[in-house]
């Protein structure tokens, strides 16, 4: 069990607006963790900080014992919430791209998952439906053998059957040395798969507990607790 993410008094301000306010957070390996919060709570800011797409205003953040940067990115597999795919590429080209930049990329696993969706290496990315494009992005990320997977809204905007696919892929890829951090607001679909949840609101961590702890202590599902905590 190792520590994959540590935030200490992590703060990010945009001008006068404080997106994250002295966050303390610690994520350990071998877990599937939900980052839950309403829009504007600071989820996206935290995710961008983990990936080095933003720099902290104050406080510290270490990812797999490194500051976010080229070294930490080797260990992080990130699925952003919009497609980052280059439309003119074929599936083979984007796989080669990932293979080139990430040593831990498992090509065979990727092609296997593509085949199950009926996607061949020669398929042009622009010919794929929106749902399939998202699945391709997910497959590329899950084919990495990373330590920290950060999935930003992997099931929003996706049909229920595809959601099941996403969830099975996540479970199937489980690795006790790695952790999957899922940021979402569709909690009821994903609750069962989570070990732990972190509630975030207005730039503060409100709660960090296991799902079973929450259900036992509150006699309700995480989804119901969320609605209660974040009631308008």
């Amino acid at each position: 069990m190792s520590e994959l993410l540590r935030c200490e008094k992590l703060t990010k301000c945009y001008g006068t607006k404080t997106a994250l306010d002295e966050i303390d957070l610690c994520l350990e390996s071998g877990k599937i963790i939900g980052l839950l919060g309403p829009n504007g709570s600071g989820k996206t800011t935290l995710i961008k900080l983990i990936n080095g797409l933003l720099t902290p205003t104050s406080g510290s953040i270490t990812v797999c014992s490194e500051k976010p940067g080229p070294k930490s990115r080797v260990n992080v597999a990130y699925l952003p919430d919009n497609s980052y795919l280059n439309n003119w590429m074929t599936v083979k080209k984007i796989v080669d791209y990932f293979k080139d930049f990430y040593e831990d990329f498992r090509e065979d696993l990727a092609y296997e998952m593509f085949e199950r969706l009926g996607i061949t290496p020669e398929t042009r990315l622009k010919s794929l439906s929106k749902g399939n494009k998202e699945k391709v992005c997910l497959i590329l990320v899950m084919s990495r053998n990373a330590k920290l997977y950060v999935l930003d809204e992997p099931i929003a905007g996706v049909d229920p059957a595809a959601r099941d696919y996403v969830i099975s892929t996540i479970i199937n890829n489980y690795n006790p040395d790695a952790t999957v951090l899922i940021s979402t607001h569709l909690i009821s679909d994903i609750e069962q798969v989570l070990d732990e949840v972190v509630f975030i609101n207005n730039g503060h961590i409100v709660l960090q507990k296991t799902v079973d702890q929450i259900r036992e202590e509150n006699g309700k599902s995480v989804d119901d607790l969320f609605r209660e905590v974040f009631r308008w």
Binding site: L53, P70, V74, Y84, L85
Partner: peptide, 13 residues
């Protein structure tokens, strides 16, 4: 553009 999400998360400075 959205490709930036891929480019800037590569292990590249």
């Amino acid at each position: 553009s959205t490709e930036g999400y891929l480019s800037f998360t590569l292990p590249v400075t």
